[in-house]
Design a binder for these strands. Structure first.
Lengths: 167, 167
DNA sequence: ATAATCTATATAGACAGTCAATGTAGTTTC
DNA sequence: GAAACTACATTGACTGTCTATATAGATTAT
């Protein structure tokens, strides 16, 4: 809380705190109204499968930050919904490889599109100068997300966590 | 998706979509790692009580977007934790008025401080220009939250919903 | 080679948070 | 003062999560 407090665009001493409050507040406002047809964790798991290909149960647990039994249950329900497939790994008969289906991929992309579009419509109602300021802050927002992921997952190349809202 | 697509700071045609994606992505990244000692709904309820004073059960249900039986259970557990008090309304003996206690208020403020500070530390690691851009986007972010609240709650003066992460 | 150990997943049992449906006490209206 | 309404509590179910443990298969050491 030392450096950029003087560097933030507001020029005031608590610009940083205010930035933090603004982002956190908006975040809060959105989360609790997200669609609930699938759990955040399910969407997050689908997202991982979609972007990085088939995975074993244990991987999904580590990536998603939940336990292996939870993933087992989650995958079973996703399978029942037709959104993923489970296949045995011929090289190691203990392993279950989970893959997203075409239906799963379709669902995911539709949901992602809807989320972004709804938010885009919100942005579209901003005054021009605010929309411009938001656009200029995009690299900062993307960078923040990277920093956040790094900080929580100091491990190697597991890839983005995927978080449900980005479904 | 018509106007500010050309007005956003990126200058590209999909600047709006990219802004939306950036914000949604960051928010997603943060949500799933929030502290879970109290549920989002509990913190949200505490926040409402803290900012608007004692409330009846039904109010809390409407404000929080959950059912009345859920609030009854939630309030009972908050009461057991010493964070709220329940008292009868002398004017209407059916009513239970729920009020936040000093301990509840302390908890809430500590949590809010911690959240904002953690996020501020993240912002502090941004390059100066990005931190400045983020600072400049604060009014836009705050405005977005307002727009979001309005859109979902076209009703009268219920006040901010409070969403758990802003605890 | 085979026994011990490790690994990947499944199962069982528990708990929190949510809901819909319904019960009960108190209030308002006609 | 009877009917209808309101505020809250209770019940029973379902989901998502956890810990602890079981089972099948793989690896390692002797």
């Amino acid at each position: 809380m030392s450096r950029s407090a003087s560097g933030s665009g507001t020029g005031s001493a608590d610009g940083l705190t205010r930035s933090a409050g603004a982002v956190v507040g908006l975040l809060s406002s959105l989360v609790r109204h997200a669609p609930r047809d699938l759990s955040m964790t399910s969407v997050s798991t689908l997202s991982t499968l979609d972007s990085t290909g088939p995975r074993r149960i244990t991987d999904l647990a580590a990536i998603g930050g939940i336990t292996q039994p939870s993933v087992t249950a989650l995958v079973i329900s996703l399978e029942r919904a037709g959104l993923v497939e489970r296949c045995k790994d011929p090289a190691d008969k203990r392993v279950v490889l989970v893959a997203i289906t075409a239906a799963g991929s379709d669902y995911l992309h539709a949901r992602r599109r809807a989320n972004i579009e709804a938010f885009a419509q919100l942005i579209d109602r901003l005054p021009l100068d605010e929309a411009a300021a938001l656009g200029a802050a995009v690299p900062a927002l993307e960078h923040l997300r990277e920093l956040d992921d790094q900080q929580r997952d100091p491990g190697p190349s597991i890839g983005g966590v995927g978080t449900g809202l980005d479904g």
